[in-house]
Amino acid sequence: MPTSPPVFDGHNDVVQHLLEYREGGRDFLLRNPEGHLDLPRAREGGLIGGLFALMALPPRPPEDDLTITSSGYEVRLAPPLDPGGARAQVLAQLAALEHLERRAEGQLRIVRTSEQLAALDADGPLGMVVHLEGADAIDADFALLYDLHARGLRSLGLVWSRPNRFGHGVPFAYPRSPDTGPGLTPDGKALVRACNRLGVMIDVSHLNERGFWDVARLSDAPLVATHSNAHAVCPSTRNLTDDQLGAVRESEGVVGFNFAVNDVRPDAHLDPDTNVEVLVRHVDYLLSRLGVDGVALGSDFDGAVMPRAVADASHLPTLLNALRTFGYDEDTLGKLASGNWRRVLRRTWRDEA
């Protein structure tokens, strides 16, 4: 059987679980019995790098926010976060990632340039691209944005599934359209322009449809959804409509295929026993809309319920081998696994000498 191509993954939430960030957290350098991602399992699965998300959480988890409907589910939209509290969390998470990089002594690297991105391979350090999932911590004059960029931030999602000063995220719901509220605020439009100037990739995952179209009109970079799927296959608010997928393709952007079972399955059931063929068929649809240059991987490891077939990073070859069995050639697999991410990030960062 051919060797699986190296993988660059568009999204994980492992920073929330790091030993460096919280008491009792996981040691990323050791194999863990819980969660989806650590260095040993990344190596086993052929993972050479990915986007590592910083994300602020509310001080207390919401209660009774899920409603089961006759046809699906609705989750009450999360309220805005206090920007000061969000800032403290994001800075603590970035410090944890920086400390982990130092402790790893060459096994991990925060990737800041296209040259470093191109150099990632199975024999070198695991590449960590710093991503901000939700700009709740960013101030109106963008001082924190510039500070984070100086420390390695290279990708930013304007919102998580809540409102902030920049725009409105979608509530989690099925079946429902992603057209759930107003577009970007004036500050949000200014943030898009600032990210374009800095060469920070803008992620439209979790953004509502009107906000998406605002980004499409304003941004001069490829449109990117780091961890989203097709609404036509699974009509979750978190997934992109055919029109949105068409706009991503036209911009020469990319959609990172999200493994979360409730956004992959046509019925949105939270069932880890989802067959790998269900994942393949969803990738098939994305490819039919985006072409071979427009689809990548965006697992959402440590942030969602995974299918048992790709229960953690060590199982990435299972998905790639399934795609190969269903007729995907090696060139296409190489683009899905890492080539498309390298292309889009290089074009967005614009840092070549």
Rank of each mutant, 00 (worst) to 15 (best):
A96G: 01
Q93L: 09
R151F: 02
R109A: 15
R151A: 07
L126A: 06
G157K: 01
A221L: 13
L191W: 10
D147S: 14
R103C: 12
D147Q: 10
A88K: 14
D147P: 01
V159F: 08
R87A: 15
K189Q: 15
G211Q: 02
G181I: 04
Q89T: 08
C195G: 09
A143C: 11
R193S: 14
A150K: 06
G211N: 09
E209P: 06
V215C: 05
A86I: 06
R109Y: 06
F166T: 11
P80W: 01
Q89P: 11
F166H: 12
L218I: 14
P222K: 05
G188R: 12
G84C: 03
L148C: 06
R109S: 14
A86Q: 11
G199I: 00
A95H: 10
L153Q: 04
G167W: 04
G85Y: 09
V111N: 01
H206R: 00
R197W: 05
E133G: 06
L97D: 03
L223A: 07
D121Y: 13
I202E: 10
Q107N: 11
S114N: 07
M128A: 12
T113L: 01
L100H: 04
R102Y: 05
G106H: 02
L148W: 06
I202H: 07
V200L: 02
M201V: 15
A88M: 11
R210K: 15
L223M: 13
R176K: 14
V224Y: 00
S155D: 00
L145I: 05
P222V: 13
H168C: 14
L158G: 13
W213L: 10
A150R: 08
A143G: 08
E105H: 06
T180F: 04
R151L: 03
R165N: 14
A95I: 01
R176H: 15
A190L: 10
A225V: 03
P80V: 05
G85P: 04
R87L: 13
D187W: 11
L184K: 12
Q93A: 08
P222S: 12
F212H: 10
K189Y: 02
P222I: 12
F172C: 14
G134Q: 02
A92S: 14
A190P: 03
R197P: 00
T113H: 02
L218S: 15
A225Q: 00
T113E: 01
W213T: 03
P178Q: 01
A119K: 10
R197Q: 10
L117P: 05
Y146W: 01
K189M: 15
P182C: 02
E105I: 07
R165F: 07
D139E: 12
L156W: 05
G167D: 07
W160T: 09
H149Y: 04
V159W: 08
V129G: 04
L153A: 01
A216D: 08
L91T: 14
L184H: 13
T180K: 05
R176P: 03
A190S: 13
R103M: 12
V90N: 00
M128E: 11
E133R: 00
D147E: 14
L145P: 01
P178A: 12
D220Q: 13
E105C: 10
V200P: 00
I138L: 15
R154H: 00
L223K: 11
L108G: 08
P163H: 02
E133T: 03
C195I: 04
A225H: 00
R151Q: 04
L158I: 15
F172W: 08
W213E: 10
R217K: 15
L126M: 07
Q107L: 13
L198I: 04
L117C: 09
H168F: 12
G127H: 05
D141R: 13
L97T: 02
W213Y: 15
